[in-house]
Computed example of a mutant assay.
Amino acid sequence: MHTIKDKAKLLTRVRRIQGQTAALERQLDEEGDCTAVLQQIAAIRGAVNGLMAAIIEGHLTDHVVREPELEQRQQDLEAVLQVIKSYLK
C-alpha cells in the first residue's frame, strides 16, 4: 500500500502542515499583520494540495494502474474521483 511505503514522507508533510497551522494560530492570537496571515494561509493551502497530490498519485499508481482486476480497478478509480470532486468544491 502506497501510504505505508511513503509513510515517512507523508508524515513529514503532515507535520509541516501542523507547524504552519500552529504559526497561523499564533499570528491570529497575536493579531498579526493581515498580509502575513494571508501568506500563511496560502502556504498551508499549498502544503495541503501537495499532500493531496502525493497521495492521489500513489493511489492511482497502486490501485488503478497496477490493479490486475478490472472490476476492482474501476471501483478504486471511482472512489478517488469522488474524493477529488469533493476536494475541488
Rank of each mutant, 00 (worst) to 15 (best):
A54G: 11
Q27V: 05
L51V: 14
K9P: 00
G32E: 13
R73N: 09
C34W: 03
A23W: 06
Q74A: 15
L24E: 03
E67S: 03
G32Y: 11
V48G: 07
R66F: 11
E71Y: 01
C34T: 02
K9M: 00
V37D: 02
H63W: 07
Q74K: 12
K89G: 07
Q75H: 14
H2D: 04
K7D: 03
R15H: 04
A8C: 02
M1Y: 05
K9N: 10
Q39T: 02
L77N: 06
P68I: 05
V37Q: 01
I44G: 04
L38P: 07
V83C: 03
A79V: 03
K89N: 01
L81V: 06
A8I: 11
T3M: 03
E31N: 14
A43K: 09
V14R: 01
L77E: 04
D62P: 05
Q20G: 05
L38H: 14
I56W: 11
L70K: 10
M1V: 11
K9E: 09
K5D: 06
T21W: 08
E71V: 13
R15Y: 02
K5S: 02
G19A: 06
E69K: 12
T35M: 13
L11I: 01
L81T: 05
S86Q: 05
D6A: 04
L70M: 07
L88I: 10
I17A: 11
E67V: 09
V80M: 09
